[in-house]
Design a protein around this nucleic acid. Sequence first.
DNA 1: GTCTATAGCCAGATAGAC
DNA 2: GTCTATCTGGCTATAGAC
Lengths: 203, 203
Amino acid sequence: MARLAFRERILQVREDAILEAVNRLLADKGFDLMTVDEVASEVGIAKASLYRHFPSKEALAAAALVRLLERTLSVIEQQGALADATPLSRLRAVVRWALTEQLSGEMPALPSQNSSLRAELAAHPRYLDLLTQVGDRLGGWITAAQRDGSIDPALPPELVLFTIFARACDPVPGFLKAGGRFGDEQIVELVLGSCFDGLRARS
Amino acid sequence: MARLAFRERILQVREDAILEAVNRLLADKGFDLMTVDEVASEVGIAKASLYRHFPSKEALAAAALVRLLERTLSVIEQQGALADATPLSRLRAVVRWALTEQLSGEMPALPSQNSSLRAELAAHPRYLDLLTQVGDRLGGWITAAQRDGSIDPALPPELVLFTIFARACDPVPGFLKAGGRFGDEQIVELVLGSCFDGLRARS
DNA sequence: GTCTATAGCCAGATAGAC
DNA sequence: GTCTATCTGGCTATAGAC
């Protein structure tokens, strides 16, 4: 019994290593260009062994995205636990986290419009459930921020939610980093500012 | 001689048809998922004939992107010719055009980070030249708008330029469209507003 | 200069030994 | 359960007939 649990722990650790590699590769090249061979060699196991853990390349990516949503939820819960935070400061903190992850190469790219991954995700109950949870939590803060007047009450809440979501795959941080004039923290604050404050001057 | 010119016109028309098909497919599935077979069948010619016009799949996509930049420049010049326009209104108009193109499925997706297309584009003189021209023209308006106080003078001009560029591949319009609650014109104005005015309320 | 047919390659998935 | 070796299919690119 103890041996079995030990075995399961080993498996768990290996799956974590697999998903971390997938996560990095998804961030680096995206789903289409990521090959299962690369994943296997990065983890240091044979491709056939990967297919013992996950039935397909799509399932592999879906599991990595589920892991990402779980991490996102934990960030959200952490923010929710802060006693003196406002709805707006919580939203900003979540976006700041997403931008930081993206700049350190740990934020998977969105699957392209017509990818086989999209179909798999649309039928993946756990993924959809987590996505809904993230949307609900953020949505609650958004409407609260609109009630307290910090976020423009005239904006449809979906627009705000999607705009926040989209920061996770914003190409602007990468452009700024390629320019070389700014450090990562500066980039995060610049993009964060442009997202919430806009490009127009505030009087 | 007249026959030769005629022949060239035919070729030109065919190449236009090819590039339009490529443009649509790039918008729909992106470079990696677009196959040369699809392009050929959409145009109604054989794949081998395509390779008479363009030496590779990358060259095909590069030509479509050059065409996109040429269209962009013509929009810019059209805006520049308006006598009573302000720098800010010109920038808004260009972003509005890009969002409209994207919503009607005619804005190619950015090549993914590690694509073979990136390498080809980085060595494509005409592409780079056009990109610089677009950047210079928009950059001029941006600094002018910062001088007249309509765009926040504290923002680095690159940030503004990249943020404007990035609207062309913003996933938010697609999300809003999928939601079904808004028409295309509404979506364009909403995203345009969130880009320039930000999410926070303006007092 | 357009077609059909095919070469050559590469990636996802699997068989079968251990 | 992990490995090596292989199958299979699809894609880019080209050869060769007309």
